[in-house]
Nucleic acid binder design. Structure first.
Lengths: 213, 213
DNA sequence: ACATGCTAGTTACTTGCGGTAACAGCAGTC
DNA sequence: GACTGCTGTTACCGCAAGTAACTAGCATGT
């Protein structure tokens, strides 16, 4: 909000900024996150120093880029969390929303989560570190929702935060694995995860002859 | 033949390799994962090309470095999974083992998981991409254990893998958040996570006046 | 009209890193 | 002694991040 008012002037720099972000996005989605600042600048039809004026450094650019998608994804999840039905329905809807998001735009997902690893390039290695912000924000958000809606005793807030981060992590790791191998349908994955959350781990009996989990 | 001398000759390269790895570890733990190959070589008392002869490229070195710790951590977790007591005890023991590991050696943990983010340097940015291997391996391992010990119906193996990755992700994200903020004791964290796994989410009633989770 | 200042843009550079040639000494081995 | 193989070196390439210094337009205040 430190933008000087000035009406139309105000948006001039802002608009340019989003133009640059869109160009950057195009390049990142095409070349992967190891895209050079030069390449991004070229795509935007300008040269490096301007990028630096707008975003400070590469990290700043990437953060700005990540923020857009993070915000969008969080909004989607929030909506799913408010969907109709009983609790289990809502949980499944949220899982579906997340998995569907990463499934339909894996490029974006890879950028947000582990920005290295080019598709056809096996030796992928490089830059990044945006996953933490996204994961954290999702965890905190979910924690808040849980704290709002559930009564978990005296330290509800604390428990809710733990659960928020835990559930998000579950969703994240399972989703990441699933996206890589696709060994089952999304429906099934959602059902199994919801089962896990619904305490089926505790209820299931030991396998005959095993020491028991 | 000369395989005598306890295979000194045979292990000569191997020993050198581990020496280099130890030097690399020292540097990485001191300077963070953005340590340069030059710095690592200097610490080992040699120069770059030798590192490249041994590890191919930087990614190779880091993989080798990561593998040692990953193997160690996995062994620890396996042991915890075999600890005495009932299932809940074992689950809690495993969570404790993991959290204790990341708590006592956060530097190593940061390197394995998100190799950027220098301690005092907020704008941290750089290299890495080892988290996936560790997370995946933990998930697969846990999935195997679950499949061995639980009977989850016709497609036990699939469900077990989903759960393995899910639980590991839960542990990971909650642990990562906890390590950063430390808002509660490890004991409590473990209990809350175990509660979550034990289906308390499903059992808990809605908060009065809320739409319900 | 003129200097002034602001903003978007440029070229050309420095620094530092990953990675590689090419070469040097020094085992042992036929 | 010549051959091979290992460990080590110096000196370089290419490339990407980031910066300094300058230029062109375009509004102003007096």
């Amino acid at each position: 909000m430190e933008t000087g008012q000035r009406g139309d002037q105000r948006t001039a720099a802002q608009r340019r900024r989003t133009e640059l972000l869109e160009a950057a996005e195009r390049v990142v989605l095409r070349d992967g996150p190891e895209a050079s600042m030069n390449a991004i600048a070229a795509e935007a039809g300008i040269t490096k120093p301007i990028l630096y004026r707008h975003f400070g450094d590469k990290s700043g650019l990437y953060r700005a880029l990540a923020k857009r998608h993070t915000d969008a994804l969080l909004a989607t999840l929030r909506a799913a969390l408010d969907s109709p039905g009983d609790r289990r329905d809502r949980v499944e809807a949220t899982l579906h929303a997340y998995l569907s998001a990463i499934e339909t735009r894996p490029q974006v997902y890879r950028f947000l989560m582990h920005p290295a690893e080019a598709p056809s390039d096996e030796k992928g290695f490089d830059v990044g570190r945006h996953s933490v912000p996204l994961l954290r924000r999702m965890g905190e958000d979910l924690g808040e929702v849980i704290a709002e809606r559930l009564d978990l005793g005296p330290d509800t807030r604390q428990v809710a935060r733990v659960w928020g981060h835990g559930i998000v992590g579950m969703m994240y790791a399972a989703g990441d694995w699933w996206l890589g191998e696709r060994p089952l349908s999304r429906d099934l994955l959602v059902r199994h995860l919801a089962d896990l959350l619904w305490g089926r781990l505790a209820e299931t009996g030991d396998r005959a002859g095993s020491r028991g989990l």
